[in-house]
Design a protein around this nucleic acid. Sequence first.
DNA 1: GCTTGACCCTGTAACGGTTACAGGGTCCAG
DNA 2: CTGGACCCTGTAACCGTTACAGGGTCAAGC
Lengths: 142, 142
Amino acid sequence: MSNVYRIGEVAQRTGCSPESIRHYEKLGLLKPPARGEQGYRYYSDEALSRIGFIRHGRELGLDLSTIQELLTLSDQPEHSCAIADDIASRHLTHLEERIRALQALADELRQVVDQCRGGTTAECRIIQTLYEHQLPHSKPTD
Amino acid sequence: MSNVYRIGEVAQRTGCSPESIRHYEKLGLLKPPARGEQGYRYYSDEALSRIGFIRHGRELGLDLSTIQELLTLSDQPEHSCAIADDIASRHLTHLEERIRALQALADELRQVVDQCRGGTTAECRIIQTLYEHQLPHSKPTD
DNA sequence: GCTTGACCCTGTAACGGTTACAGGGTCCAG
DNA sequence: CTGGACCCTGTAACCGTTACAGGGTCAAGC
């Protein structure tokens, strides 16, 4: 109980690189941890779970400022969770839109690839398509 | 015929910003265009379609170095289009993987959002999940 | 003792692609 | 002859992560 970890061990346990952890601290997602005499950062179990929180948020595709918001909310346990719900729902909608967009691209690309029958680049449907085809205006993705 | 455009008009016609066009030139995707006495860039119809090519590639989610490859290929009309086919197929696979990953995230998130029944953040399933839940190790996306 | 290697520190720059500046020149219409 | 639209260059920001450089600290093994 009341364990203490150096940044490397935290990195191993959370799957966050030490660089990322220091980065989160600089951005204010983590409060500056205790320091040993040599200046080493020492983390508590609590800090560890906070870093886990950030990591899971990133895995879900949330950006750091959104995660920051969620952390602030979770620091106010009596606060309504409506905002968290809203953030998650919005992100879900965003994901679904993104999936649809990528699906459209993949379909597009599948068609083009299917039309390619080998031969020279001059005859290549893939390259011709890039020159000719006007896609409905979408933002570049990926 | 043999039209000539300044960068702003090219931007309008291709949907690329002037900054991007200059950027592509700096990266070597476009060869330096003719210049007027004042130093203005003047583009031909050919350059215009090349920029369109880049734009469509970006819309399909290709990165600039891949587009560079494809442009080089298209400059060699007698060359086999097998490489172009390969690039497109690979990208398609990549897209499909990405879609699957995002689908998994969306499903995950949908579950969590569905479990949220309002109340305080202390009870909030969304926040709890971020603290507790170990997602199978995926790379952060988006 | 003294070296080796693993770990930590700070600060800075790169990645990719785009956007937004600053500080300047050119051109046409009113 | 002045205002505004356009162009030029170069630099920095955005986002999150990674990779440096240049240094300090500590333990194990000789």
